[in-house]
Design a protein around this nucleic acid. Structure first.
Lengths: 238, 238
DNA sequence: AATCCGTGTAATCACCGCTTACATTCACAA
DNA sequence: TTGTGAATGTAAGCGGTGATTACACGGATT
């Protein structure tokens, strides 16, 4: 369902697959990770699924299509993922990992002396990634693909990000850069702001600014600055 | 798909339907709208779909299940909706209508003298409805179910809401209640804030506050107040 | 060398969206 | 009153999907 007229009658692209199986060029080169039958189906499936997500969003991912792209039978993926949702979980974890990596990297470039500036940097990096990878961000957002609280690895990724913002905010407060009193409120409001802007961008709720997205990114920065100006101590305004 | 073991073999609940068709009690009472075969299938289908959305989110809606609940054959709905998406569009329009109605009603109760207070009222009403009807809000948000720009009726509903906030904001500015300069930025930031908070609530990104949701609602109000304090002229703070 | 378990295949099931051909029944008019 | 056309619903079926089962293969262990 939900993919009615995609590959019409088109004879199976894997005809005679058995004899001509590509076998990702892992012969006698290196033992690699898992040189079993396929080589590394699990990873290939995740990559295929991520590609599908990038092409048509989460709904465009089907186990069969991922199997097709990996060159295996429709039932093979179920040896690695008990269900489609499990595959999506893996995809979401991978996306979350990349998201976190980029945020942390961006923050590493920020000057350590100005907590509020680092907070701003955090928001900008967040929005930049979300707008550049809308479908992947969509997966991360929706709890349908993993529980942010459970799901070991991802939980720590996400928790680390939240902890990072909390710490940065606390430092800004200690440095006397904040006028706002309740840090928890500020933290949640900040998250809601960037999350909302990112999702508005994804969901098509933003005016159709220039196709170049430069305007959207400018607006993203403006929004973050507006928020920060709102919580900053008047004398310390940037 | 996506509903593997729901109604097991369970014999069709519509056995012998033909003779005992309920016919929504519209015999000689009143001409009603469309007392055709079924009575008013279109509306019944929309209501069934809305119920399904309320039970399991947008993904849980299937044309066949809606038809089942309406007591008609699986193909019948396609006489009224050319596709599943068209049905979802109708559901979304209905949800959007109710959303708009509640917002407007809430604003009608607000004192006309204080634009910024009305703006706050807008945000609170928005969040209250979104948190009380999470799945319906989800449908409204996702552009997959209708283009907010096209889709006649809904477009006006949505545009009206946006226009309302713009006007309220402009009034607040004229009244000297705002410190922020760029009204467009403020408007988008405000929308992003409430949209983000609502979606965080839906997507499970908020701490598990009390089950009573009272805490979430309190936090929602706090967030709105924090934002308003951030854009308000210092002397005019509420 | 024999065995075992992880992996992939083939076949199959129920459910889905959607289409087509056919049956029914209301509405309007001669 | 009686046709007749259009609106509505039914039955059957297509291809696609997630998921399960029985079977085949092959590297790793003994």
């Amino acid at each position: 369902m939900r993919r009615p007229a995609k590959t019409p009658p088109a004879k199976s692209p894997s005809a005679g697959r058995r004899s001509a199986k590509p076998r990702p060029a892992v012969a006698a080169r290196a033992p690699a990770a898992k040189p079993y039958h396929h080589g590394d189906l699990r990873r290939v499936l995740i990559e295929a699924a991520m590609q599908l997500v990038g092409e048509g969003g989460p709904e465009a991912v089907s186990v069969r299509e991922a199997a097709r792209r990996a060159g295996v039978s429709p039932g093979a993926p179920f040896r690695h993922f008990p269900s489609r949702d499990a595959l999506m979980n893996a995809v979401a974890e991978e996306a979350q990992r990349r998201f976190r990596a980029e945020i942390v990297a961006a923050l590493a470039d920020a000057p350590p002396g100005d907590p509020l500036g680092r907070f701003r940097c955090l928001g900008i990096a967040y929005l930049r990634w979300a707008m550049k990878n809308p479908t992947h961000f969509e997966i991360i957002s929706s709890r349908r693909f993993f529980d942010h609280d459970r799901s070991a690895g991802v939980s720590s990724d996400n928790a680390e990000l939240i902890g990072l913002t909390e710490r940065t905010l606390a430092e800004a407060f200690s440095a006397g850069q904040l006028a706002a009193r309740d840090l928890k409120q500020v933290q949640i409001a900040g998250r809601a702001l960037v999350y909302g802007f990112a999702r508005m961008h994804i969901d098509g709720h933003l005016p159709r600014w220039g196709v170049a997205e430069a305007e959207a990114e400018q607006m993203a920065a403006d929004i973050v600055d507006l928020f920060i100006a709102g919580i900053a101590r008047p004398a310390a305004k940037v």
